[in-house]
Design a protein around this nucleic acid. Structure first.
Lengths: 334, 334
DNA sequence: AGATAAAATGTAAGTACTTACATAGGCGTA
DNA sequence: TACGCCTATGTAAGTACTTACATTTTATCT
């Protein structure tokens, strides 16, 4: 069943059928009706590949993420997919892991699959060593590249991100002002996002005249889904490192700290205050519930898809938008 | 840059270039080398749409789920995507919500996008009213349909599921044998999967000579991500319904029960035992950690993708495989 | 060396659309 | 009535591959 069959049965040319299918003008109401009824009667649907070949697009966007089992990324995918779908785009999902080679490989693969654009979820795709970002620059020659929660200045790259520096600074400052000065910063990846949070933490200490002590900045690159191991990690830290609060770069880590406190019999928030990041479902799961930074994922996703649709419609769009996170106060802080 | 350009520069015909690209035999080593070096030099990649048109496939699988923000479905997507990617397939993700019309609409859309097959994640796609399953039968005319954790007998439909009846029966029986007879069953959807669990719960009671009381089977169709509202729901149940254990169809619900116990000051598991389902990240998040049924999601995903690859390679594959869930004993049961 | 088979390569016909351009027909105006 | 313009429709040339079948080249055997 092709456009030729339809044109024959409707007694018109294939161009007319194509015009009807694509809602183009210049078709008389009579003809349109006739063609539509034939299409309906035959249950015809145009071949997507042929259409893609002719239009050089199949209305498909690539979503690249390092690890979709991570709650933040999974939620981002959820929101992005929904917004794209509402705009008549579908998405191809591809998880890369955190290695450069695979990130490169799969970005390439999506470009070669001829997606209209690609959205990179999370700051794992941007490396500090700038040479390692060349694979992104390469992709921009073909299609626009959108970054969710990552910062990268380049032609045909569009970013939407949260001001992690500011939110970490505010969260840490709040702790200090509540009387807690010994604060552990806990992070599990060295992405830009995590490092911006670390900077914010450091600035808060400096602004308050407190010392920066590297042993209070703990890096635990474990499996983010293995919550008990996070508690174990905290138990393994040198007991000389005494702290009364934890600022964690992620709710998972913060939950690990909650578990640690339970194990040690520390009362939360009196003996240990905890602040997480992302306002994920984990933050309402524990007792007491987690104080956490909401980084407005839904707004970011909404904005990034809006930007994308604008670009694909040939509009000029802003290349970077920075949102502000919001501290959601629950039970793990005073 | 097309296959014609390459053929010209390499001094061979386009058929030969195509053979080299597709790794077909019948090309001399010399010729292959020459063609490959030209391709390399030009940075040529074949046009995916033209390829799709010629082969009637773009190596793409549709993944349909009702709600990818649900932990179970998100994890399923994660595992399925990984397995597919390892087999050289990409996936188009599409979330439908729980309404029939949208499930129908988006299944159709994927079929029309010419995916090679479609995997339906979760039993939300199968209705009790069999007429509402016709949209699936329709799709099977075009492509194989795979169901993850749902049961449906039809040609060109392949299922992988867990024996929810058995696991619920065993979990409930275990509670009874530990001395708890008043057990609340809590569920948040009326999918086949949830109803099979309910059956298992009922059978356990019956086998032990205990009465079936409808007020002990509570349906709470709220937002699965709003954990506090689950606790509130439990608080709102008629106080005459006295129970010392909760079997929940999902870890989210079980966490709600944990929160409820905290609010009421009930000690877990002595005053209230709780069993969840899915062994999701939530189950290690709370205090004490959740006893839960692991339904072997990863195995199911592995099997379903394996089956799919077999089908697409023209092999005969089993239409249904049923795994057994396993009770993971943690702190919320005696 | 010549016949024959096998391997390598080429030709051309799909695959199913979109769209620039050509043409026809209807209408209003001079 | 003739001309021009606008709308509706058709023709045909892309779009870039795959692959059946034809042809040429190479190898093998007698």
């Amino acid at each position: 069943m092709t456009i030729y069959d339809i044109s024959e049965k409707a007694g018109v040319s294939i161009a007319t059928v194509s015009r009807v299918l694509n809602g183009a003008g210049n078709v008389s109401a009579q003809t349109r009706q006739k063609v539509l009824s034939v299409i309906e009667a035959c249950g015809y649907t145009p071949n997507a590949f042929a259409r893609g070949l002719g239009l050089n697009s199949m209305n498909t966007i690539g979503i690249l993420c390092a690890d979709s089992s991570d709650l933040y990324q999974a939620n981002a995918i959820y929101h992005i997919e929904r917004e794209l779908r509402q705009n008549n785009y579908n998405c191809i999902l591809c998880c890369t892991g955190y290695g450069l080679e695979d990130k490169q490989k799969y970005l390439n693969l999506l470009v070669n699959k001829k997606v209209d654009s690609v959205i990179l979820v999370g700051s794992a795709f941007i490396a500090d060593n700038d040479a390692e970002n060349d694979y992104i620059r390469e992709a921009t020659k073909e299609i626009p590249v959108l970054l969710l929660n990552a910062d990268f200045d380049f032609e045909n790259v569009y970013c939407a991100l949260c001001d992690d520096f500011k939110s970490a600074l505010q969260a840490t400052t709040g702790l200090i002002e509540s009387g807690v000065e010994d604060i552990l910063f806990l992070y599990d990846s060295k992405t830009h996002s995590a490092l911006r949070k670390l900077s914010g933490y450091q600035s808060a200490l400096t602004q308050k005249g407190l010392p920066l002590r590297t042993e209070y900045m703990q890096y635990f690159p474990g499996n983010h889904a293995d919550l008990p191991s996070i508690a174990d990690f905290l138990s393994s830290i040198d007991p000389a490192v005494q702290y009364r609060a934890v600022v964690a770069a992620d709710d998972n880590l913060a939950i690990g700290a909650v578990k640690f406190a339970h194990k040690k019999g520390l009362s939360i928030p009196n003996e240990l205050s905890i602040i997480g990041y992302n306002n994920s479902i984990l933050s309402t799961c524990c007792e007491p519930e987690l104080t956490t930074v909401d980084n407005r994922l839904e707004s970011l996703c909404h904005h990034i898809v809006n930007t994308l649709i604008g670009i694909l419609n040939g509009q000029e769009m802003p290349q970077k938008v920075i949102f502000s996170g919001e501290l959601v106060k629950r039970g793990t802080t005073l």
